[in-house]
Write a protein that binds this DNA or RNA. Sequence first.
RNA 1: GGAGAGGUGGCUGAGUGGUCGAAAGCACCCGACUUGAAAUCGGGUGAGGGCGCAAGCCCUCCGGGGGUUCGAAUCCCUCCCUCUCCGCCA
Length: 425
Amino acid sequence: MIDPKLLRNDPEAVAANLARRGFEFDAAAYRELDERRRSLQLEAQELRNQRNERSKAIGQAKQRGEDIEPLKAEVADLGERLERAEQALGEVQERLEALHLELPNLLDEQVPDGADEADNAELRQWGGIPVMAFTPRDHVDLGAALGGMDFEAAARIAGSRFVTLSGDLARLHRALIQFMLDLHTGEHGYEEVYVPFLVNAQSLTGTGQLPKFEEDLFRVDHDPAYYLAPTGEVPVTNLVQQRIVEDGEMPLRFACHTPCFRAEAGSHGKDTRGMIRQHQFEKVELVQVVRPHESWAALEALTGHAEAVLRRLALPYRVVSLCGGDIGFAAARTYDLEVWLPGQERYREISSCSNFTDFQARRLKARWRNPETGKPEPVHTLNGSGLAVGRCLVAILENYQEADGRVSVPEALVPYMGGKRVLGA
RNA sequence: GGAGAGGUGGCUGAGUGGUCGAAAGCACCCGACUUGAAAUCGGGUGAGGGCGCAAGCCCUCCGGGGGUUCGAAUCCCUCCCUCUCCGCCA
């Protein structure tokens, strides 16, 4: 949620900023609506004040044993007028609230201009594109050759956009999770957490998936509604929902292995082949809750932590800063890590690291006690995948493949694979 | 799923129709005492919002929602959550 004070005082500035996303915000209409709210609120407050005073007088008169009937009559129509004012105010407030929840976060000034993916700014590359002496296969072909990757079985069990892994591949999948968690908890200062994977609507509203993106979610038939978490970001960030975090506790750094479930309603026909885009996948998620002035430094650090995984695995990648048209709803600035996939001959997103500034914190009512003011103020939240496990497995298969279809195990994962160095051997 | 007990400020916990945003304690801040600290004593300290140049004034908030009443933390309905016991279960 954008700071309501800023919205009220300078809606034109908000509109100009959001326009960089291609988002239209009618500042004049907002001013008008907010002005209406203000006058209705004044009226309601004044009436309520009068009613409170009159009621108090009744109590006092009653204690003195006086007749209170005339006083009661006096308050009668006050109540009716108040009710009307409150109803009108409630309607306006509801509209404002709905509007607030649908406004995306303000973009940081460093976010590049642009309409889509093609306009993202490459910040750096690492590893270089490998040259192979043979025509590289993609992970689907490699999986078929190795065995242990079965899309048909998954389709029978569930449907399309699922996969089953078995044997070495299932173990490699688990090895990646263990390796990432060990790295982040052991060397990057994260606390490992375990959280619910079914979440309620309030949590999804807190991190920004609701109310606008319900079609991307799987909803469970239960009353009240549960949703399958589309990303670990939701349950983990909501750890600080409705909390006032003490200054000394910050920054909070959480690492969590979570499954993610996405309906991807808008992506039919996109990445239909293979494991790239699935209804179910796993991530090791990194979440930070920091003091506001620390969040930009934290974004660089967090991105570095995610990059460290790719470097340890010696997977070539690049970092791009998402442009205004491509960045997510809640983010002020986002760096995507894109890994090189020889089978596709292109970079593909494997991690997305964002600073949400105070946008999620407002929705979550996640605050800290600022020692300078002594007041509770919104924290800043960040998260990033560190990394997406399924895509990481794809990247290893494609980058570590040999001419004969076998796949060597990255050095860092050998201990997690029971010493095994080659898959398919 | 069944039975019972509860949900009150940063925390613990009183309060069962009016002067209660709410006792007390803890924590925290300021001051006194002290060479310093501790202990002790005195004072202060909830959140959100509106109006105002400011001082300040006002409104809302006692799990969520609805109701009764001139007036609700307090009474009624409903939902959610927590705890205890029973059942079931990985």
